[in-house]
């Protein structure tokens, strides 16, 4: 017997393989005073994800060419360090003494 999907076993009546697209736009949740900030942050995060994916693929190519190993010992540690650099400004804290 082949591993059954729910539909094959008759267990999910009309279960869609892919969720149906909503017929109307879904409402947007916003968290800032101007929805433009919410959307721009979405663009920023999409770009950050793309940069990380590119970085990951570059590391893979470097590894094949015998380039020196990355500083971080593992992909998970590398991702954590990348994200820490990305999000550091969110706390609103300065790193040097100075006037406001």
């Amino acid at each position: 017997m082949i591993f059954p999907t729910a539909a094959a076993l008759g267990g999910t009546r009309g279960a869609p393989a892919l969720p149906a697209m909503p017929s109307a736009p879904l409402p947007e949740q916003t968290f800032f005073s101007d929805p433009a900030i919410d959307r721009l942050l979405g663009v920023t995060m999409a770009l950050a994800a793309e940069v990380y994916v590119l970085r990951d693929r570059l590391r893979a190519i470097e590894a094949r060419t015998g380039a020196p190993a990355a500083i971080e010992p593992s992909p998970d540690a590398d991702a954590a360090a990348f994200v820490a650099r990305l999000f550091a400004p969110l706390a609103g804290e300065q790193e040097a003494k100075g006037p406001l």
């Binding site: 990380y52 990951d56 991702a79 999000f87």
Partner: peptide
């Protein structure tokens, strides 16, 4: 890689 980025961001 994308999922690793999201997991790190969630952490």
């Amino acid at each position: 890689a994308h999922q690793r980025f999201v997991a790190a961001a969630r952490s």
